[in-house]
Amino acid sequence: MTQTCTITMTVNGEIVSQQVPTRMNLVDFLRNEVGLTGSHVGCEHGVCGACTIEVDGVAVRGCLLLAVQADQASVTTIEGLANNPTGRALQNAFQKHNALQCGFCTPGMLASAVEYVEGGGSPERTAIREHISGNYCRCTGYQSIVDAIADVLENASS
């Protein structure tokens, strides 16, 4: 019989408490149990980056963390990104530069971008490209994503 466990976490500032199967990963929990479908499941082996979310302040793969491991954690998903000025600035820049097409990679791409910008990343394009190299985008060719992140960094420094 499937083992379950009751977990409590803060998701985008809201406390969520629920019984979950221990085998359920965090991104499935957020999507299917909490109803926050903004984080996406693209590969379930930690490579594509579409499920990247912020757990206790760091960007992690939501498919490689069990929901039960995020018990007592604070989680920020794409839906909560606008509460953070960097998140909002990046969302706006992604819109302005059309740094997305189908949008499936965007939640994870933004999570990685927030980490980069908040970590004091350089606006140099090669450095941006290296940082987002763990996030697949199959539509844009990446250039517009680099433009958007560079835009935010340049505006912040000017």
Partner: peptide
């Protein structure tokens, strides 16, 4: 012009089948 859809998709408001 900017895509109206981009606003939705950057805020996690897409509606994909698995959602």
């Amino acid at each position: 012009v900017e895509r109206a859809d981009a606003k939705r998709l950057t805020q996690g408001r897409g509606q994909y089948v698995d959602d």
